[in-house]
């Protein structure tokens, strides 16, 4: 057997959840077998493309596929929305990268997913469920028509708190409102896992800090190689500098310097805006709609997957 030769990164399924959010299922049997919750991949959609990190949203060893959920906001992801159809191939797909999430023996866990963090939260919630925990899922969307994977979450969560900004489904509010309700109702909550835009993860970490509830977050900084070589993804955790790609991407939310993380996510804002401009012009599209406001206002959330 020669591992890798069979992996041509063929897209075997696609589903669109909204104007901007779409799911790709890619065949990669070895990766489907090796992947663990919390890990990510790096994707290049074409030879001239950039390498973008995306957290794994699912992986099915039996099917030999991995699942990515992508939000099309920047140049690369919008282009992928157009070109990544069933039967086509990705130019490059490498992973699983990063240290897998530590699924501890906590009895009661809240899994909070906002924005792009909803999909990658699923394998973690599932892993906690399998480990015997009481799992409270908290997921947020802008509106009821953007909700996806509700059934998937229900199948692995003992409770699911669904939040929508406009109140059209579940509770009205953002995921931190959901977390607050959860914290009030569950004095025995042992652990919180939060994935989403940095502002959201920061708010989650602040909500649990007073009660000293262990809160793990999955950071998503700019990176190139994903193997510890470029150092672009360095984050301040406590008084130390860590590389998200090989030391993370999961870190203790009470230790992460989110302001630093958010500032560093803006590194290429100018170039990305310019690339987006050129892309829309070259596509002869009408002026692009302003990037949609996400669950929490963070214009750079899309920049590096979720």
């Amino acid at each position: 057997m020669n591992p890798g030769t069979q992996a041509v990164f063929e897209i075997v399924a696609r589903e669109d959840y909204s104007d901007a959010t779409f799911m790709l299922e890619v065949r990669h049997p070895l990766m489907a077998r090796a992947a663990r919750p919390g890990q990510f991949v790096i994707v290049m959609s074409h030879p001239e493309g950039e390498r973008i990190p995306l957290t794994l949203a699912d992986f099915e060893p039996a099917k030999g596929t991995i699942t990515l959920v992508i939000q099309a906001v920047g140049k690369t992801t919008r282009e992928m929305q157009q070109t990544c159809q069933v039967g086509t191939r990705l130019h490059a797909l490498v992973g699983p990268m990063g240290v897998p999430s530590v699924i501890g023996k906590a009895k009661k866990v809240a899994c909070v997913g906002g924005g792009l963090g909803v999909a990658p939260m699923y394998p973690q919630a599932r892993a906690y469920k399998h480990a015997g925990a009481y799992v409270i899922g908290i997921v947020g969307f802008r509106s009821h028509d953007l909700v996806f994977w509700e059934d998937k979450f229900k199948s692995v969560c003992d409770e699911l708190i669904l939040c929508t900004n406009d109140g059209s489904k579940g509770i009205r509010g953002i995921v931190t409102d959901g977390l607050r309700i959860c914290l009030e109702k569950n004095p025995d909550l042992a652990e919180v896992v939060a994935i989403g835009p940095p502002v959201m993860m920061k708010a989650c970490a602040e909500a649990t800090r007073a009660r000293k509830i262990k809160t793990m977050v999955s950071v998503n900084p700019v990176m190139v190689d994903g193997t510890g070589m470029c150092g672009g993804c360095r984050v301040k955790v406590g008084d130390r500098v860590k590389f998200a790609c090989v030391d993370g991407p999961d870190f203790d939310g009470h230790q992460v310097d989110f302001d630093d993380l958010m500032a560093r996510l803006k590194r290429f804002a100018e170039q990305e805006k310019a690339a987006m401009q050129r892309f829309t012009e070259s596509c002869r599209m009408k002026a692009p709609p302003e990037p949609e406001p996400l669950d929490l206002p963070d214009p750079f959330e899309e920049v590096r997957g979720g």
């Binding site: 020669n2 591992p3 890798g4 030769t5 992996a7 990164f9 070895l30 990766m31 090796a34 890990q39 490059a92 797909l93 490498v94 992973g95 699983p96 990268m97 990063g98 994903g226 193997t227």
Partner: peptide, 13 residues
């Protein structure tokens, strides 16, 4: 010699 790219040894296997 065969070259297999996109393979992160340690994590993929």
């Amino acid at each position: 010699v065969k070259f297999e790219c996109n393979t992160l040894v340690g994590r993929l296997f």
